[in-house]
C-alpha cells in the first residue's frame, strides 16, 4: 500500500517520519518526492544501483516554416512564447510541456525536443528500496520528476511504499498523493504548523483520501494540534515526543528506529495503525 506523508509547513518532520516508517517496515520502498530538497537519502545512505534522467518536452520552432501568425504565442497560457523580430522566442523555463503549441501551429513549424530537468536514483539501504527524485537547480516544476519516482511504487498491497511529499499544498503535493492509499499529515505544536495542516487537510479531503495526523515534537503544555484535530474530528494516530535524542540522531543523519528499539516500536505501531485505518476506510467505502 502507498502511504503519502505530507505536512503543509516545511520542517515539521515529513522526512523524519517517512524514513522511519520505511525503515520500520520489512521490504519497504521509500520514494522521495521532495525533489527540490531530497534529503531522505542522507539518512538511508543507499547503495545506488541505477540512475535515470528525467526529461520534459519543450517546443522548437522552425523559423523557415513559421509564418508569424502568433497563434502559439496567444495560445500559451504560461507566457513561454514571444514573437520578436520575425521569430518565435521560447522561454523553456516557463514552459509547462503541455504540448499545445505544436497542435495550434497551422504550418507544422513547431516540433518538440527533450529537456533534462532532473534525475531519479534507485538504491538499497538494508532491505529498503530507496528511490530519490532530484530536480536540477533553477527548474520551475518538479511534477514530471515526481511522476517518474512514483512509477517505482510497489503494486503489492502487502508491501509498504512510503511517499515523502514536498511541503505546501500545490501541484507537486497533489502529484505526490494522487496514487496514495492513505495520507499521513505530520504536524508540530506551533500555530504555523496548525495553519498549514488546515490547508493539507482541505487538500486530502478534496482528493477523498483516508488520512490521519501524527504529532511530531509533541510537548505536554501546548495542545494546538490536538485542539484543531478535536474540533474537526481528525484522528491523531501517534505522538512523537520532543526528544533531544531524536534531534541528535537527525543531526548525525541516523535513522531513529535503527538506533533505538523504543522508536522502532513507535514507528512499527504507527505503521500497523495506518494499515488498519486504511483497511477500515476501504471496507467502509465498499
Amino acid at each position: 500500500m502507498n502511504i503519502a506523508v505530507l505536512s503543509g509547513k516545511g520542517g515539521t518532520g515529513k522526512t523524519f517520519v517517512s524514513v522511519n516508517l520505511a525503515a520500520a517496515a520489512a521490504g519497504s520502498r521509500y520514494l522521495d518526492c521532495d525533489v527540490e530538497e531530497p534529503n531522505g537519502r542522507l539518512f538511508f545512505k543507499p547503495v545506488i544501483t541505477k540512475q535515470e534522467t528525467v526529461c520534459v518536452k519543450v517546443p522548437v520552432v522552425d523559423h523557415v516554416q513559421c509564418t508569424g501568425c502568433r497563434r502559439c504565442v496567444d495560445f500559451c497560457r504560461f507566457n513561454a512564447l514571444a514573437y520578436i523580430s520575425g521569430q518565435v522566442l521560447v522561454f523553456t523555463q516557463l514552459c509547462h510541456s503541455c504540448g499545445g503549441c505544436p497542435l495550434v501551429c497551422p504550418t507544422g513549424a513547431i516540433s518538440e525536443e527533450d529537456k533534462v530537468i532532473g534525475t531519479v536514483e534507485m538504491g538499497k539501504s538494508e532491505d529498503t528500496t530507496v528511490v530519490t527524485g532530484i530536480m536540477d537547480p533553477g527548474e520551475e516544476s518538479g511534477v514530471a520528476i515526481i511522476d517518474q519516482v512514483l512509477r517505482h511504487a510497489s503494486n503489492k498491497s502487502t508491501e509498504a511504499t512510503i511517499i515523502d511529499c514536498p511541503p505546501g499544498s500545490s501541484c507537486t503535493v497533489m502529484e505526490g498523493i494522487k496514487d496514495a492509499d492513505y495520507c499521513l499529515l505530520v504536524a508540530e505544536p506551533t500555530l504555523l504548523s496548525v495553519h498549514n495542516l488546515g490547508m493539507v487537510w482541505e487538500l486530502v479531503k478534496t482528493f477523498n483520501k483516508p488520512f490521519g495526523v501524527v504529532i511530531n515534537k509533541a510537548v505536554d503544555n501546548v495542545h494546538v494540534v490536538e485542539d484543531f484535530c478535536a474540533t474537526h474530528n481528525i484522528n491523531v494516530l501517534a505522538k512523537i515526543p520532543f526528544d533531544f535524542k531524536l534531534a541528535d540522531f537527525c543531526a548525525k543523519g541516523l535513522i531513529a528506529c535503527r538506533e533505538d528499539p523504543a522508536y522502532l516500536e513507535l514507528f512499527s505501531g504507527l505503521l500497523r495503525c495506518i494499515v488498519e485505518e486504511a483497511q477500515h476506510e476501504t471496507t467502509a467505502n465498499n
Partner: peptide, 19 residues
C-alpha cells in the same frame, strides 16, 4: 493586462507589448 493576473511569465508578455 498581465499586471492584474496571477499567471507567470509577466515579463515575457510585458516585453511583447513593448516590442
Amino acid at each position: 493586462q498581465v499586471a492584474r493576473s496571477s499567471e507567470g511569465g509577466a515579463g515575457v508578455v510585458a516585453g511583447q507589448l513593448i516590442v
